[in-house]
Amino acid sequence: MNKTATFKGYLIPALLLAPQLAITLVFFYWPASQAVWQSFLVQDAFGTSTEFVWFENYKELFSKPDYYKALWNTLVFSTLVTSFSLSIALLLAVMADRQIRGYQVYTTLLIWPYAVAPAIAGVLWMFMFNPSLGIMAKGLRSVGYDWNPLLNGNQAMALVVMAAVWKQISYNFLFFLAGLQAIPKSVIEAATIDGARPMRRFWTIIFPLLSPTTFFLLVVNVVYVFFDTFGIIDTITGGGPSKATETLVYKVYSDGKGGADLGGSAAQSVILLFIVICLTAIQFRYIERKVTY
């Protein structure tokens, strides 16, 4: 892990590290510590006085149904997005892995949505499903389905999920394809000679060998759903209707906007921080395991 040949001196490495450390301290650690500190404070309505209240903000958070609702939304949202985007991407990757002619063209055509900003993805899907002018909304109504995500919370959630899945498929596809291509062809050929049919080959050999990739993607997708989907939610629903699509991150934003409830918002940030640390720890363990392979 360490180089044997190195340079000597203290000043040069200090100077080399200075820019990164300075930015990290000013824009990462200081604000993060401020968030922790603020989560213990309560400010009065006019912002004139603050009081140290220990865990009062947290207690209040957990006494409100709002927070549980956001927690539930996040759970539903991440389960749906993760399972759909992973399974669709896996199906596409298995198909592309057959090395059919032109599969590289297909790869290119499948990975570009990664480059679309989440907020733009939201606009695209909102336009398609806009109840008054969207082409898909028109289609749904013509078959007699009462489509209005502006009023119906479940429909709003469905729309946000579709946009988030649409954007995440490319990423998962790329990693699944790389994982599939790393499986030695001889293993699969051996199974074929033993008479295993394609479905059986997939579930007994390919899928288990792919499990490190799947696990890694699971964690990455959960992180994606937690944080990167902010733009999608903000452009499609703005957390509505009546908070049906408000996730934990979105709530941090909407509660803290305009300084309305900084203490409560900070307490939520701290809880999120805790969740991210857990997720990173899980991922880290996975990386360590991969190394010992």
């Binding site: 401020q34 968030a35 921080l273």
Partner: peptide, 26 residues
Amino acid sequence: RMAAFWLIFLTLMLPVEVRIFPTFKV
């Protein structure tokens, strides 16, 4: 050296969304 490395490494766990308002204030 390792302290500096960990200081940088730990920022992996701090997406901007988590510390958005304090960072805004800074």
